[in-house]
Structure formats: structure tokens, C-alpha cells
Simulated scan of single mutants.
Amino acid sequence: MEFLEAAQTLQENGWLSHTPVAFQDAVLSRATFHHYRAGEVILRCAQPGNAIVGLAQGCLACQLPPRVDASSLVHLFAPGSWTGELAFFCGGVRRVDTIAYTDSYCMRLSKTNLDKILKDDPGYWQWCNLLTALTFDVTLMTLDALTTFDATARIAKTLKRLAIISEKTSLAKTSQADIGAMAGLSRKGAHDALKRLEQMGVVRCGYGTVDILCLDALEQVIQGVKSKA
């Protein structure tokens, strides 16, 4: 992937696709293009928020600080997603690590360059606020899944969140253990829940892959479990 292709992907997907062309141009003209290898730390926890990163190709993972009792994986980012804005806008330190889940191509915008953009046009702050709102929405979806008692519904909500964010029903190559971690379940718990969803004809599981066969059916599973509560 080259710079122009990455820029086009970010203009057509996610946060920037909801902003004016002038703002898109201001951001992308000041961003730098990077290739990260799988497993490489892109934004490190407890470090100053001096940049945000937009994913053009591949998959990024959001992880809490390492724990000995459970996986720290929280969320997977699809192309079009941007991350790192909380510490970036607030001036604090990062609460999570962002790593390359797979080989990934990204745009990186430094705080210095964003400050220049906002100095030239303070009205652009509304589009920065939009990024924060989009992230907050993902956070609420994550909390909704994690506070759901039924394991099948919890997995269904986690899959729905990943599908909505990626705007795809074929998810990035993801292990059942990682899906379980994002749903707050053990590997066995995730496997059993995915098996139930597969038997219901809602998903198809392969080696390291999960395909959602019907988002409407996934929603019906979620609503069905809700109605039994």
C-alpha cells in the first residue's frame, strides 16, 4: 500500500468520511505514512499522547496493561478507525497499548501538526469532538457486552460491535480465545457460545476466522436473550 491509497481509504471509511473535504486534506497532508509489523507497539500505555493513528490496511488491537490472570485484549480496529485521541486531546498519558494485530499500514498525525490545523481554523474542533464521540460509542457497546450475563448474547454483542465498526460481516483473522477475551469469557466459554451461534446458522467459524452470516439474525439472538431476562 502507498500513501495515496491509504489516504483514500481513510477518506472513504470511518471518522474522516464524516468530515468536510477541507478537514480531511488538512489532516492527511500533515500525517506521515507508516508500515507496522504484526505485534509491534504503535502507541504505548503510560506514554504522553503525542499522536493519533488512523488505520488504512490491516488490523490494530487495543490492549489494557498486561495482566497475569486474564488476557488484556479489549478491541480490534478495522480500516478507517483512528485511535489515541483521549490522551492526545486531554494532554495526559495513554491508558492502553495500541499494537499491530496484523501487518498494518497507518497514517500518524502528531499533536504539533494538529495544533497547527486548529490554530488555522478553530472551527475544526467540532470534527475532533466527533472522533471522541465515535470512540465513546464503541466504549458503550463494549460495556453493554461485558455487563451481559448470558455468554451467547455476550459473544453476539461483541461480534456485532466488531462488524459495525468494520462495516463487514467477515471479521479479521481472530482466534476464538481473542474473541473470548474481548467478551470477558474464557476460551472454552467463547468456543461454546460460538458453537451455539453456528448451530443456529448465525455465524460460520473456520480456522482463525468468524463470518457473520446475517446481522439481523445476530440481532435477533441478542433481543431474544433480552426478552427472556
Rank of each mutant, 00 (worst) to 15 (best):
M1R: 10
M1L: 12
E2V: 08
E5Q: 15
A6N: 08
Q8E: 15
T9F: 03
L10P: 03
L10A: 06
H18P: 01
T19Q: 00
F23R: 00
F23E: 00
D25A: 10
R30E: 04
A31K: 08
F33W: 15
H34I: 11
H35W: 11
R37P: 01
G39T: 13
E40M: 13
V41K: 15
I42H: 10
L43M: 10
L43N: 04
L43R: 06
L43T: 04
A46R: 15
A46I: 09
G49C: 04
G49N: 02
A51W: 02
G54Y: 04
G54S: 11
L55Y: 05
A56D: 08
Q57W: 13
G58I: 00
G58R: 00
L60K: 02
L60N: 02
Q63L: 15
L64P: 08
P66L: 10
R67E: 15
D69M: 13
D69A: 13
L73V: 08
V74S: 07
H75L: 15
H75P: 13
H75R: 15
L76C: 12
P79Y: 05
S81I: 03
T83M: 06
T83V: 14
L86M: 14
L86E: 08
L86P: 05
F88R: 05
F89S: 13
F89L: 15
C90P: 01
V93W: 06
R95F: 10
V96T: 14
D97E: 01
T98R: 02
T98S: 04
A100T: 01
Y101I: 06
C106L: 08
M107V: 06
L109I: 10
S110C: 05
T112P: 01
T112K: 13
N113A: 14
L114C: 02
K116F: 05
I117R: 08
K119F: 09
K119L: 09
D120T: 07
D120M: 10
D121G: 01
D121W: 05
G123W: 02
C128R: 00
N129W: 05
N129Y: 12
L130T: 00
L130P: 00
T132D: 00
A133N: 05
L134Q: 12
T135Q: 11
F136P: 01
D137Q: 13
V138P: 00
T139P: 01
L140V: 15
L140R: 15
L140D: 14
L146M: 12
L146W: 11
T147S: 08
T148A: 13
D150V: 12
A151N: 14
T152Q: 07
T152K: 04
T152F: 00
A153H: 07
R154W: 09
A156L: 02
K157E: 11
L159G: 01
R161V: 06
R161T: 15
A163D: 03
S166L: 03
T169E: 11
S170Y: 08
T174L: 11
Q176A: 08
D178M: 02
A181S: 14
A181N: 06
M182T: 03
L185Q: 10
S186R: 11
S186C: 09
A193W: 05
L194S: 02
K195G: 01
E198T: 05
Q199C: 04
V202C: 07
R204Q: 12
Y207W: 03
T209P: 02
V210G: 03
L215W: 03
D216E: 14
Q220M: 07
Q220A: 10
Q220S: 07
Q223I: 05
S227G: 06
S227H: 12
K228I: 10
K228R: 13
A229N: 10
